[in-house]
């Protein structure tokens, strides 16, 4: 429209809007939007809706009762324990890896990045299996563990280990590109002004990546609480003791306790929705930060 006006300021001749040649007709546009939304409704909204509809199918009080079953509570507790251990460990690792990879140049860097991403390409079932082969009764360290009365597989430590493995790259892969993009000028300035290494890290580097860090932690946590395949292999499915929420859902579902299964599932679905909301907020926030930085750069250049 704007170009049409500038070419023909008097508006004497009626000119077709300038966008017409690079836009679709209303009919095509409607059909494309309709098809895309139908696809999303069938594959995204419907499964999400079914979880809540089934959970509440027998009313709120049944829903509430299914969540208060001792086995369900034990499963929630174990899921929280696994996440509370796995997420901070992977957070510390992610920051260390991002510092080494993002701020320094060294030989073998891209190989290291590939190795860090490796757990994402391993099937969850295989992720659990590797620990069974290491710590299980038939595994390499099995006899030694047995002699010292330590149990990792079919116990909580195995569940925690499998959770750490599947959520391993989340924080690192969010932070590496951030550290890379920010360069080292601010840190060099802080050091030149007399700050110690740790002071520089906590007061300069860490605040610069806080949104990326939060983002990585949220994704890591969502996966840690929802992991099924890997945990299923190492857990041994002992009710009330080694069942996480996803494993408890499986047991309930296979026992045809659908309302109870979907009640526990609805909690995890709420967690997923919360994750998405926070993710959108963080994305919006960091985009604003980038826009602000770009504006500052621009002003510097033109002044």
């Amino acid at each position: 429209m704007a170009t049409a006006d500038t070419i023909n300021p008097g508006g004497i001749m009626r000119i077709r809007p300038a966008t017409a040649a690079t836009a679709e007709s209303g009919l095509v546009r409607g059909a494309l939007i309709g098809t895309a939304l139908l696809f999303l409704v069938v594959f995204i909204f419907l499964p999400l809706g079914v979880v809540f509809a089934q959970a509440l199918a027998k009313g709120l009080s049944t829903y509430w009762d299914s969540l208060r079953q001792p086995d369900a509570l034990a499963a929630m507790r174990l899921t929280l324990i696994a996440a509370v251990i796995a997420v901070p460990l992977n957070l510390v690792f992610g920051v260390a890896a991002a510092w080494a990879i993002g701020k320094f140049e060294f030989v073998g860097k891209s190989l290291l990045i590939t190795l860090i991403d490796l757990p994402f390409s391993v099937s969850p079932v295989v992720s659990g299996l590797i620990y069974v082969l290491l710590f299980g009764a038939q595994g390499w360290l099995g006899p030694w563990l047995m002699k010292h009365d330590l149990q990792i597989i079919f116990a909580v430590p195995g569940i925690v280990l499998a959770t750490i493995f599947v959520t391993f790259p989340f924080v690192a892969r969010e932070l590496i590109p951030l550290f890379q993009a920010q360069g080292q000028e601010e840190e060099e300035a802080a050091l030149a002004l007399g700050a110690s290494g740790w002071q520089t890290f906590f007061r300069v580097s860490l605040p610069n990546i806080k949104w990326g860090l939060l983002y990585g932690v949220i994704l890591c946590n969502a996966r840690a609480m929802g992991e099924f395949g890997a945990v299923s292999v190492v857990s041994g499915h002992i009710r009330g003791r080694t069942n996480t929420m996803p494993l408890h859902i499986e047991i309930l579902y296979n026992e045809y306790q659908f309302v109870a299964a979907f009640a526990v599932a609805s909690l995890l679905a709420l967690l997923a929705l919360t994750t998405l909301v926070v993710k959108s907020a963080v994305e919006w926030k960091s985009r604003r930060q980038v826009a602000k930085a770009a504006r500052w750069d621009g002003e510097e250049q033109t002044v």
């Binding site: 499964p47 079914v50 089934q54 099924f228 859902i249 679905a269 994750t275 998405l276 993710k279």
Partner: peptide, 25 residues
């Protein structure tokens, strides 16, 4: 915006939850 942010749901929704929901449908 709602559709846009829900595209990521399969990343965030635990696979067991997706499994029983899809089976029910």
């Amino acid at each position: 915006r709602l559709f846009d942010s829900l595209v990521d749901l399969p990343f965030a929704l635990p696979t067991a939850v997706a499994g029983i929901a899809l089976t029910t449908i």
